[in-house]
Amino acid sequence: MTDSATKGLKPKHQRLVLLSLALVALIGAGLLAAWALRNQASYFYLPSEIISEAPAPDQGVRLGGMVEMGSIAEQPDGTTIRFIVEDGTAEVPVSFTGIAPALFVEGSGVVAEGKMGADGVFVADNLLAKHDENYMPKELEGMTREQVRQQVKATLE
């Protein structure tokens, strides 16, 4: 901004212009930093990312995705479970020994903390359940969101 551009303005407007410019620059810088952080700031890797850029065998990582339908299998020892985490394009088998959180179910999100084994099985030492954005009573389970919306509309009308 040159002097001649601001000369004609009232001080009030001059402050407004300068502050707006500063604000735009600040927000731009912040968003840019956030964008640059997008990989580092992610809490977990998706199965496709883990497969394409396999972590070192002894490196602790987090794997997150959906628990594949029908994939949870309890092992004979009673405390180990095996299941498959998928993200729509890739899937990774996971083995976990311990107590799973209450929301750990098939078809729902999960974050597994552990290491990638040499045999391609992810060995988790901790499981976290990830909830999705849908809040739905038990009775409406199995209905799609569109069906629910229609039923609600019908009861309201």
Partner: peptide
């Protein structure tokens, strides 16, 4: 094994 906590 799954955790069973009383949500309430």
């Amino acid at each position: 094994m799954r955790e069973t906590l009383d949500m309430m």
